[in-house]
Design a protein around this nucleic acid. Structure first.
Lengths: 250, 250
DNA sequence: GACGTAAGCCTTACGACGTAAGGTAGGACC
DNA sequence: GGTCCTACCTTACGTCGTAAGGCTTACGTC
């Protein structure tokens, strides 16, 4: 069903679905997800908004495609990793899985808007499913039953792809500002607010005091090291899964 | 600077911020988050859209308030739980935490749109912080250092509030349809698509075949029991945390 | 070459959305 | 009875996604 663009025929322009999607990714990277509108994307490409509809069915389809682009980028990065040897010990599944997930995460950190889009998709793209498929393969190497693999996927949730929604981060990394501006004001305000209600949330205040003291950095809310927190949570789950897999082996 | 509405003065109408927020929650419950617009909410209340701006600053503020309403509902539900006795054994933290999180989850399941709104808040409401505070309290009972508590919060992520983003679920519970309609067609389509690319994602196809066989229910993608999968993931994390807390005790 | 066809792009327009600006009416207080 | 505040309304603007249809260019076929 793909358009039968035979070898010799040169299209009027070089504008293709692929170029549209790449441009959309660029735009979102630079100016945030909110700036990715049909009109602004068209402006970016030097065409009119309605012309985009020759390459994507509608905006949802555009977002689907954009997810595909990111997923392929993830796949490429994962493919560059050293594959797991067939004769590797059972336990090797864990480090290999960890590495794959952190690799996916590195890509998503380059496209911070992507997780939001990913979450709102209502259908899965092939590249994403392939990513999952390779994860399943690693767990099978680890001796997981398919049943356990299935549970494991649910347990990992979005962590399997390298992100976790942190209800905790007051990062304020809003879209729009091209220059990477600091957001110290927000932190201070949040900290001040917390102090104000110290008796309402005593444990929270104490925790913040205790944790920010150890850490040499600032005494504000923004101290968390996202990467190591992510790995902490990931390791807990991987350890738990490994234990269950071991038990399955009898 | 809240308006100093003294005791005797009767406002022209009974429309208050609280009533606006309640109405917004109702509307979202009934017709989905997409149907919650300033205009439709106003229609619901029998006023004009612009009149809402006397009770909320703008739409973001409305959503902030709506989150508050849900968070208070969670707090109320949690408050009805039997409190953890001071002389309860250390290990009691685990069951108490589990119960609190599942209680929060039950509320969020009544407002399925809420997790989406929660994720997009850029500032924390007091009710949500209080909820977290009580979780911290439970962990402190479990002997957690504040440092471990902090890591634990990150590890739980949104699971602390009772939801996890499942990149996996093809539920298709889109907003708009008032009646709870079935979505079998989507499942079948997804299954068919998977079969079509069996050689591209062999593990995935095998897993689906294996798991759906055991389970008596349908053989489609929609078989997952969200609740038990949530509990599975939660238990893995709680177990891991408990082990770490135990280690901290020397 | 002439010609039909179809793809790629454009123009215009519609109905949503959030909300800025300013108007009006009715109760509270002097 | 004049003044003021507040709840509510009216009108209007700029944004969004996209439906409908027109123009133009490049091709395949004679």
């Amino acid at each position: 069903m793909t358009s039968p663009r035979t070898a010799g025929t040169a299209p009027r322009s070089a504008l293709t679905r692929a170029r549209v999607l790449e441009s959309a990714v660029d735009l979102a990277d630079r100016e945030g997800l909110g700036a990715l509108t049909m009109r602004s994307l068209a402006r970016e490409l030097g065409i009119e908004a309605m012309s985009l509809y020759h390459h994507v069915a509608n905006k949802e389809d555009l977002l689907d495609g954009v997810v595909d682009v990111v997923a392929v980028e993830i796949q490429d990065a994962v493919a560059r990793l050293e594959p797991l040897a067939d004769d590797a010990p059972r336990s090797a599944w864990r480090t290999a899985t960890r590495r794959q997930i952190l690799t996916a995460r590195a890509v998503l950190l380059r496209h911070r808007w992507a997780s939001t889009v990913l979450e709102t998709r209502k259908t899965f793209s092939l590249p994403v499913i392939r990513y999952y498929d390779s994860l399943i393969g690693l767990m099978r190497h680890g001796g997981f039953s398919y049943d356990l693999v299935h549970h494991a996927m649910h347990a990992l949730g979005s962590r399997a792809l390298g992100f976790s929604q942190e209800l905790f981060e007051p990062d304020g990394a809003t879209a729009g500002s091209a220059g990477g501006g600091a957001t110290e004001g927000a932190d201070d305000a949040a900290t001040a607010m917390l102090m104000q209600m110290a008796e309402q949330v005593p444990h929270m205040v104490e925790m913040l005091a205790a944790v920010s003291h150890e850490d040499g950095a600032g005494s504000t809310l923004g101290w968390c090291d996202d990467q190591s927190e992510f790995e902490f949570g990931l390791d807990i789950i991987l350890d738990g899964l490994d234990r269950l897999a071991e038990r399955e082996q009898h």
